[in-house]
Nucleic acid binder design. Structure first.
Lengths: 115, 115
DNA sequence: CTTTCCGCTTTCCGAGTCGTCAAGTACTTT
DNA sequence: AAAGTACTTGACGACTCGGAAAGCGGAAAG
């Protein structure tokens, strides 16, 4: 029996990962607002994803202010795709074809964010 | 922000509901084996789904032996479809579905810092 | 300097979830 | 009478969840 990666399955982390799958990197504050959680919640889930090796945290500065950027690792990207296909496998038992009705698109992320 | 119905989101219950969405009814034992859980786990999740009004339990006999059948209610069917569409909405932010094959716009990412 | 602010991180907490195991129920078969 | 079938229920420990609030290092303000 297929099991859904528990690291990704948590609603907040699913949102984070889905968001990050679309871009090169995203700022902490942007992710926090997009996902709709508090600082502490994002920080905790971010750490969980980092511990799993799914995201990478890059610390830097904007001017003199510290910033953190989140970025999906290759492992995280793979885990996400696997998760989605497992999800589809489960949901497809219902007869609904919902996620990913097309052949797997290239998610190699050629040019998403800003260089 | 859309939230994923927690009653359905639990992995075991997602499997149960997906399974039931495909059929009229299913026997307790069949669901238990298909989902891959113990009697007690299915019984508990079944009760949770019943309490939510998502499934209906029908008790009857096969010969002289008691049997229980699970059946999705209309409410459950609707909730499942809503859940799946929410899921798709979330996952589509990744660019993974056919709905949004387009490249995503740049996110708050000036990337001007030097670590 | 010293206080305040910023951008996270960490700790504490209570509430809820998860599955296993053991026991209970009600009826049937041996 | 004892054992089996088909669940149901309760107790249990091991989590996970998110909010509140305190912490922390540096920057800016006073």
């Amino acid at each position: 029996m297929i099991d859904l990666d528990p690291v990704i399955h948590a609603p907040v982390r699913l949102r984070i990962v889905s968001l990050l799958a679309a871009v090169e990197e995203a700022e902490f504050g942007f992710v926090r607002d997009a996902v709709g959680v508090s600082d502490s919640v994002l920080s905790k889930h971010g750490s969980a994803l980092e511990a799993a090796g799914y995201v990478q945290l890059r610390k830097g500065y904007v001017g003199k202010r510290p910033r953190t950027w989140y970025r999906l690792t290759d492992l995280g990207r793979t885990a996400f795709r696997t998760y989605v296909s497992h999800l589809q496998e489960i949901v497809s038992t219902s007869g609904l074809t919902v996620l990913q009705p097309e052949a797997t698109p290239p998610v190699g992320n050629p040019a998403s964010g800003v260089p």
